[in-house]
Design a protein around this nucleic acid. Structure first.
Lengths: 335, 335
DNA sequence: AATCATTGTACAAACGTTTGTATTATTCGT
DNA sequence: ACGAATAATACAAACGTTTGTACAATGATT
């Protein structure tokens, strides 16, 4: 491997000059800079990033920690963040926590020990608060939280307007004539889910419907728990559900189907996240779409700018068959 | 940040002893090792990985390069590889190429410059051969290819039995009574797709059916191209398709539907990859399942062991509604 | 008691960069 | 043409670890 010393020797200058030339310092003459660049290209030089990082005390790696990369939402956030960070000369180190607290701590340690320039993360369901995050990261490594955030941690945050989104989804169900609407609320240690639950409650109140706490099903985030909660909801006389997740909504649909209920005529449902399968299944599932690519972009921007505020990315309700009782709209092939 | 020198100073020994103690060298006395370990824990020491990497000339990072992380197949490969690598003390750096050649080269450079311990990769469709891979990686960085491999590159390879799988899928269609079976073959610069195409051809031959090359649709890998090729296939009188991808199969289904054909009665289809949506849509799509998690595990194992052979991971045909014309099996809710 | 293994530690040189300070070359005003 | 100011480069020390070699201490062997 060719080093800056090799280039320096070849040109009869010192390594420091080469280093400055290559990093575009104004302290080297235009002429030498060009000579250095040409020689570097000729000799096939490439900067040893590890050495550079050691000296500088930080790297050009930005760590992204997500519960699971295969979730549509998270892989799109990553894609959005990547698009910004790559252009800015960073590369991206992705870690999965599989929703486990210990894996999250380990990921944080790994990133810190690799001296990442910053961390973008959405915490695991297994994390109750952000103490461990602050502990591992300290105040040297900038943190940007997205989607699932601990609002008492410092640093920028990018969130969806969960309250308004869930409000709209619930109101939509009411407008479709459903009257006993339950919810699959998710985990309350996530502020995102808590906000959705509040939006659901407020919508019911504003529509003059009672808020029946027995229709709120907590800890429902995957297909299986959605199925179980769906059965209970039907048992309790629900005619519709707003689910804070798509997979649990899918479970609930399966529950309704297993009870012989027709969707959307006898049972309506709106999920959240707009996973790919929602528009491929039959009936097509209505879903409250997040805007993950944009969230990723915003998170990356926040990291780059260093600003600490909270960015809100709006959600969009995708009305499809599973909640369209009034006018059965005929959706196009690609909807 | 506390360094080994701090620990050394605190104990009255030298940094080298501390380093050896912490890495478990037999050259330090049990007693001192324990003292060092205690002091390290007490002072909250954590090894500076960047410095360590610089000195050792390599890192504990294994790079994984995939076309797109959100594909079910790839995210599962990553999951499988992670499960092995993490246990072995490595961490994983994930790069996406978005099927673009230039992005692939850039990812390779990034990984090499970060002195990764090894690279696991599945090349982009945009790559015609592996010259750039060998060029960037040299012979210092071990390479393991999976799924899409260039067989003339050195290093271990993990592949599916694409020939046998496609053979089985095609034969299944014949057994279901389809007689004019086309294929959405994918890109021929990928050996995986080429092998599937051969399996398809051989199955037709073995079943005594003619191989009509006009029914082979190349470059069909996404929904849109699948739709277009599906229309052409129907035009040409096909009554079934074996698709080397699920998304293109989905497009073909939509094409058949747009022509008013009933599935599977009038048109049968089998996809490949067993994407999540295949079992959620209506009709449920038959698919030739890869075993991505296992492939990831095998790739990681191959990296760890340093063995150079080719590992074959078997595929499994998931027969569902889209190709079940004979006996309409009633599949369970969770199938 | 002197010699020789053996064991444990210390010393010091790397790894390739970056960067503060010192030094030399150049330019400019007078 | 000389000194001052400025520009360009050289020098050298870091960043924190690892590791080959040298050294000292211990114990065994004759």
């Amino acid at each position: 491997m060719v080093t800056i010393s090799d280039i320096a020797a070849a040109l009869g200058v010192t390594p420091s000059t080469v280093s400055r030339a290559l990093s575009g310092s104004p302290r080297v003459k235009e002429e030498t800079r060009i000579a250095v660049e040409r020689m570097a290209a000729e000799m096939g030089y490439e900067r040893n990033i590890v050495a550079s990082n050691l000296r500088k005390g930080r790297s050009d790696i930005v760590g992204i920690i997500v519960p699971r990369i295969h979730r549509n939402f998270f892989s799109n956030v990553i894609g959005g963040a990547e698009s910004i960070l790559e252009a800015a000369g960073y590369c991206v180190l992705i870690c999965q926590t599989h929703e486990r607290f210990d894996a999250e701590v380990k990921a944080l340690r790994t990133l810190r020990n690799n001296q990442v320039a910053g961390v973008l993360m959405s915490h695991a369901i297994g994390s109750d608060n952000g103490k461990h995050i602050q502990e591992v990261l300290g105040d040297r490594i900038p943190l940007v939280q997205f989607d699932r955030v601990f609002s008492d941690l410092p640093g920028a945050k990018v969130v969806s307007n969960n309250f308004e989104g869930a409000y709209a989804a619930t109101k939509h169900l009411v407008e479709q004539g459903y009257r006993r609407i339950g919810t699959l609320a998710g985990y309350m240690n996530s502020e995102a889910y808590a906000a959705r639950l509040e939006g659901y409650r407020q919508a019911l109140r504003d529509c003059g419907l009672p808020v029946d706490e027995s229709l709120v099903h907590y800890d429902t985030i995957v297909r299986e728990t959605g199925f179980d909660a769906g059965l209970k909801a039907i048992e309790a006389g629900c005619d519709a559900l707003y689910s804070a997740g798509d997979f649990s909504a899918l479970g609930a649909i399966e529950a309704a189907r297993s009870k012989g209920l027709r969707i959307p005529e006898e049972f309506g449902i709106v999920g959240t996240a707009n996973e790919a399968f929602t528009s491929l299944m039959t009936p097509k599932m209505s879903s409250l779409a997040l805007n993950p690519f944009e969230m990723g972009r915003q998170a990356a921007q926040a990291f780059l700018s260093g600003e600490e505020g909270t960015v809100v990315v709006p959600m969009e309700l995708k009305v499809r068959e599973s909640s369209s009782r009034n006018e059965q709209q005929n959706l196009s092939t690609y909807a």
